[in-house]
Amino acid sequence: MPSSTLMPLAVVPAGDEASTPVLRYHRCRWCGSPTGRATLLCPICGSSELDEQASAGAGIVHRLLTPRHRQYTDGETICLVVMEEGFTVQASLDDALPGTVPEGTRVRLAPPAPHTHLPVFRACA
């Protein structure tokens, strides 16, 4: 997957679903590949015909990341999450001390946190 400085956004919808966060991504109309929202072209076939979709919000921790500058992370645990839809997103793990969530842990999208610009996930029980 190509890396980008922009990440898919976790958004809290208004109205009755205000407590349910939504993670949006793009799916290519031509080849069906999923990708984050920060892309203008499909990374697989190069098509510009991308449809925005809402993720179910479930995934698996693929890799824990060590930030280069810890003073900027406020102690949050940063990781890569592979979503059930097939795309990967950089995220923050909520209520997790560094090193306490192993790779392969199932996670679910959580409400946005004020201390991070990344989508926030919690380990499933």
Score class of each variant (00 low, 15 high):
Met1Trp: 05
Pro2Ser: 11
Ser3Gln: 10
Thr5Lys: 10
Met7Glu: 15
Pro8Phe: 04
Pro8Cys: 00
Ala10Asp: 03
Ala10Cys: 04
Ala10His: 06
Ala10Leu: 01
Val11Cys: 01
Pro13Tyr: 10
Ala14Met: 08
Asp16Thr: 11
Leu23Gln: 00
His26Phe: 13
Arg27Gln: 09
Arg27Gly: 04
Cys28Glu: 00
Arg29Phe: 14
Arg29Trp: 01
Gly32Glu: 07
Gly32His: 03
Ser33Pro: 00
Ser33Ala: 14
Thr35Ile: 01
Gly36Thr: 05
Arg37Leu: 15
Ala38Met: 08
Ala38Ile: 09
Thr39Ile: 06
Thr39Leu: 15
Thr39Met: 10
Leu41Glu: 10
Leu41Cys: 07
Cys42Phe: 02
Ile44Asp: 11
Cys45Gly: 09
Gly46Ala: 07
Ser47Gln: 04
Glu49Met: 14
Gln53Arg: 15
Ala54Trp: 03
Ser55Trp: 01
Ser55Tyr: 06
Ser55Ala: 12
Gly57Glu: 05
Gly59Ala: 04
Gly59Trp: 02
Ile60Lys: 06
Val61Glu: 01
Val61Tyr: 02
Val61Cys: 08
Val61Lys: 00
His62Gln: 09
Arg63Glu: 12
Arg63Ile: 04
Leu64Val: 08
Leu64Pro: 00
Thr66Lys: 08
Pro67Met: 06
Pro67Glu: 00
Arg68Lys: 04
Arg68Asp: 14
Arg68Glu: 07
His69Leu: 13
His69Trp: 10
Arg70Ile: 10
Arg70Met: 13
Gln71Asp: 15
Asp74Arg: 08
Gly75Ile: 01
Gly75Trp: 03
Thr77Arg: 00
Cys79Glu: 05
Met83Trp: 14
Met83His: 00
Glu84Val: 12
Thr88Cys: 11
Thr88Ser: 10
Thr88Asn: 02
Ala91Pro: 00
Ser92His: 01
Leu93Cys: 06
Leu93Tyr: 02
Leu93Asp: 03
Leu93Phe: 13
Leu93His: 08
Asp95Met: 06
Asp95Thr: 15
Ala96Lys: 00
Pro98Gly: 01
Gly99Arg: 02
Gly99Pro: 02
Val101Met: 02
Val101Asn: 07
Pro102Trp: 13
Pro102Gly: 09
Pro102Arg: 05
Arg106Leu: 10
Arg106Met: 09
Arg106Glu: 14
Arg108Lys: 12
Arg108Glu: 10
Leu109Cys: 06
Leu109Ile: 08
Ala110Cys: 11
Ala110Gly: 01
Pro111Asp: 09
Pro111His: 06
Ala113Glu: 15
Ala113Asp: 09
His115Pro: 04
His115Ala: 09
His115Val: 11
His115Ser: 12
His117Ser: 14
Val120Ser: 05
Phe121Gly: 01
Phe121Glu: 03
Arg122Val: 10
Cys124Ala: 13
Ala125Thr: 14
Ala125Ser: 15
